[in-house]
Amino acid sequence: MNKEELVIETQNLQKKYITDTVETTALAGVDLSIKRGEFVAIMGPSGCGKSTLLNILGMLDSPSSGVFKFLGQDISNATERQRAKLRKHNLGFVFQSFNLIDELTVEENIALPLAYLGVSKAETNKRVQEAMERMGIAHRRNHFPQQLSGGQQQRVAIARATVSNPALILADEPTGNLDSVHGREVMAMLAELNESGTTVVMVTHSPSDAEYAHRIVNLFDGQIVTENLNVKRHAAELL
C-alpha cells in the first residue's frame, strides 16, 4: 500500500448557503490533504463549518466552488448518482445520534450497505457475522435499536460503517451521545480500525477523543487556522 497516496485533496473549498435575504459562508476556502491510513480529527467551536466540511468530504453535500479530489479523481462536479456509487464503495459513516433504522434488527442494519452493493447472501452473512463479533454485539443480533444502550447502538453503527471494508470512515462526534466509559470504548474501536489500515476522519469537540488522531485540524469561521501533528500518537507509532 502506498502510504503517500492521497485519499482526500481539497483546494480552496468554499460553501455558501443562500437564503432569500442572507448569504452565510460555511466554508471560506479550505485546503486539506489526507493521506491513506491517516487518522485526522477536525475540531473547532460550534458553527465553524466542521459538519459542513465532513458532509462535503462524505459526498452528502457539494461545495459551492473549489476543487475536491477523492482518490485522485475530481468530483467537484459529479452527479448525485456518481456520488452515490463512490459512497457505497468507499465510505463508511458514524454519527453522533447513531442513525440506525428503527424498523430493522441489529443484523439487518449492519447488512444494509452490502445489500446496496449487491453482495451475495452467503457472503453477507459471513461478513455481518465477522463485523458483529469484532464489535462484540453478536448476542444482540435480533434486537431492534431501541432495545440497546447508546454504546451498543454506536457499536452497531460502527459495524455497519465497516462491514463493506471502506477506504475511509467519516465520524461525526461519535462519542457525543455517550458517557465517558462507552465513549472510550468507541474511540478504541476507531483507533483499532485505523491501525488495520482504514483512513479515519472525525469531527469532535472533545480534546481527549482528538488524542487518538495523528493530526488535528482546527477550523474557525470556515477556515483552517492550525494543523497540529499529534506527537503522542506519532511517537507511539514510531515505537
Binding site: 462524505g58 452515490a84 456509487k85 459512497r87 457505497k88 433504522i101 444494509l112 446496496y116 455497519r160
Partner: peptide
C-alpha cells in the same frame, strides 16, 4: 426522513 438519509449514506441512489 432519517431512514431515507441513512439509506443514501450507505449507498442507495434515488431510484432505489
Amino acid at each position: 426522513a432519517k431512514e431515507v438519509g441513512l439509506r443514501k449514506v450507505v449507498g442507495a441512489d434515488r431510484s432505489q
